[in-house]
């Protein structure tokens, strides 16, 4: 079976800086795949190339076997790739349920006429959208918070809402950019369980950028390590933890003798 997402020789430059350099990543269907690496390694840049916010200069990204290169971000979302952001980017002045309903919007069809004349189709569709959004809120653990202004949610709930909003686009592949950032240990454990549920209950493939090694090592099927825009290692969590190149990238030269990444 071909990989769900297949990035071939993807290169992105900002002026003289090569942020992503000939990156090859294959993400198997139904996998939980992590990308790790020090700050500035090019992980988020890669996300932006996949989702269409940056245009990569070279290489190609195949999703379900079809190239995504040059597509607008909204089109890519409709193809089935959802994402969250490193620094939470909710629609702050919209309610919680409205945020989810915006995510759901590409599965609705009514337009100007339907809205103004409240056609039967539009009414049914809106009702369905509200129901689906409520189910999604229940799924991410925000049931009953639908009428809150999203900026008033506590931090952890904002993260959940952002994931719920991305899930509402009904993606096949979900890109999570540091979902555990700023979470306390118990919230982190919940998050790990939640990511596993995404796969088991919704059948979603997850691509994860994460600094939290405990999360990465315990839930990933495969880990890709980046440094200075290049892939320096790839494999199962065990393989990667013991890879000297990885330890060097994280802890500097000479650290190899002292231990392994993520074994604490």
């Amino acid at each position: 079976m071909p990989p769900l997402l297949n990035a071939r020789d993807v290169t992105k430059r900002f002026g003289g800086l090569t942020a992503v350099n000939k990156l090859n990543v294959e993400i198997e269907e139904n996998a939980i795949h992590s990308i790790i690496g020090p700050n500035g390694a090019g992980k988020t840049t890669f996300f932006n190339c996949v989702t269409g916010f940056y245009r990569h200069e070279e290489g190609t990204v195949l999703f379900k076997g079809e190239p995504l290169d040059g597509m607008q971000p909204d089109r890519i979302t409709r193809e089935g790739i959802g994402r969250t952001y490193q620094n939470i980017r909710l629609f702050q002045n919209m309610t919680v349920i409205e945020n989810v309903m915006v995510g759901y919007q590409s599965h609705l069809h009514s337009g100007w006429i339907g809205a103004v004349f409240h056609t039967r189709g539009q009414r049914d569709e809106e009702k369905r959208a509200v129901e689906e959004a409520r189910k999604m809120l229940a799924f991410v653990g925000l049931a009953g918070r639908g009428d809150w202004m999203s900026k008033n949610l506590p931090y952890g709930d904002q993260r959940r809402l952002e994931i719920g909003r991305a899930l509402a686009t009904k993606p096949d592949l979900l890109l999570l950019d540091e979902p555990a950032a700023g979470m306390n240990p118990s919230e982190t454990v919940d998050l790990m369980e939640f990511i596993k549920r995404l796969r088991s209950e919704l059948g979603i493939t997850v691509l994860l950028i994460e600094h939290h090694m405990q999360v990465v090592m315990s839930i990933s099927d495969k880990v890709t390590v980046m440094d200075f825009g290049e892939k320096i290692a790839e494999g199962t969590p065990q393989e990667v933890q013991n890879n000297p190149m990885v330890i060097e990238a994280y802890l500097g030269k000479g650290a190899t003798e002292y231990g392994t990444v993520g074994s604490h």
């Binding site: 989702t51 916010f53 607008q72 971000p73 909204d74 979302t77 409709r78 994402r83 952001y85 980017r89 629609f91 702050q92 002045n93 919209m94 409205e98 309903m101 915006v102 995510g103 919007q105 590409s106 609705l108 009514s110 337009g111 100007w112 339907g114 809205a115 539009q122 569709e125 809106e126 959208a129 909003r165 686009t169």
Partner: peptide
């Protein structure tokens, strides 16, 4: 309506709105 929510989303954050599949 859906259109109104899309507009509001665009007003709030254009990039994210686009990432939600909204044709800007």
């Amino acid at each position: 309506s859906r259109l109104g929510r899309n507009w509001m989303a665009i007003r709030e954050d254009e990039d994210v709105a686009q990432a939600m599949g909204i044709d800007l």
